[in-house]
């Protein structure tokens, strides 16, 4: 029975074993990025280990989003070396980053407002689709089979994020917190090994934040996905992160487990807003 097949797909035993922090999968060394005369990032080095939740924090304009954009290939740093899965990266663009298993969500929601939740998440499967445009247009032969397989995966994501009741609702009609969840869903549909989340909780109320935290932890826990996260809410960051890197004015001022970072005087200064 179909049901049983699907149950075994979601079966815990067949997936990654218990979450344990593994080896370094992404290593950034001496990254500098400037736009003309403006230095966005200056000589930043840090690494991300497999299965961990790594947060990037810092005041506004610290270079956090630039850092994410460097990781998934939107920006190419002028200096520095990026090693991903043991390979030194030559040049990179977002498309190739995605094929290598990097997915992301955006600070400003970037969904197709007029399309349903289901279709939006389906777009996350884009890279996994093998058939050509012509086959898809005719919905014929292997395209049909492929579509069914992708739909199955998308339904698993919908089930995981508990958004069954809005499956067919156009995204534009949903409240902000749910839109954020749908965006996470689209990223998950790509079955990423590295998930970049750019302020997933910005503008949410307490309850929505709690939900989002739970989903982020569940993603990390159940799929073993490595997560790099930008977030302003310190409570959230300190609660769910394994390690935190702190940026300020494009420079790294702290790096370590949440407790270390919390007690770092430079970090406190940056956050309490002493004069520069």
């Amino acid at each position: 029975m179909m049901m049983n097949d699907m149950a075994s797909l979601g079966d815990t035993q067949t997936q990654a074993p218990d979450r344990h922090i593994g080896d370094v999968i992404l290593d950034l060394q001496g990254i500098s990025l400037s736009f003309g005369g403006v230095k966005a990032l200056t000589n930043i080095s840090f690494d991300v280990r497999e299965h961990e939740i790594r947060s990037i924090i810092g005041p506004n304009g610290a270079g956090k989003s630039s850092m994410l954009n460097v990781i998934n290939g939107v920006y190419r740093p002028q200096e520095g070396e990026i090693t991903f899965h043991g390979k030194v990266r030559k040049d990179m663009d977002p498309h190739r980053a995605a094929t290598q298993g990097i997915a992301r969500t955006f600070q400003n929601i970037a969904l197709f407002k007029g399309m349903s939740v289901l279709d939006n998440i389906m777009t996350g499967r884009n890279l996994k689709m093998k058939c050509n445009l012509f086959e898809h247009a005719l919905y014929w032969g292997r395209a049909q089979k492929e579509e069914i397989e992708h739909r199955k995966k998308v339904e698993e994501v919908i089930d995981f994020l508990e958004i069954q009741s809005i499956r067919k609702t156009p995204v534009g009609r949903l409240p902000y917190g749910l839109q954020k969840r749908v965006e996470l869903g689209r990223a998950l549909a790509a079955e990423p090994t590295l998930l970049l989340l750019d302020e997933p909780m910005a503008g949410m109320n307490v309850e929505e934040k709690q939900d989002m935290c739970r989903f982020i932890l569940d993603v990390n826990d159940q799929f073993g996905t490595t997560i790099v996260l930008i977030e302003h809410d310190m409570g959230v960051v300190m609660d769910i992160s394994d390690r935190v890197v702190v940026l300020d004015y494009g420079k790294k001022i702290g790096d370590g487990v949440p407790d270390e970072v919390k007690n770092n005087p430079e970090v406190i200064a940056a956050y309490l807003g002493t004069s520069h």
Binding site: M1, R151, Q164
Partner: peptide, 15 residues
């Protein structure tokens, strides 16, 4: 019948 993963899954009496 139970709706799971967006599809109604059916169990007959024998099952």
């Amino acid at each position: 019948r139970e709706k799971a993963y967006g599809i109604w899954q059916t169990y007959n009496w024998a099952e």
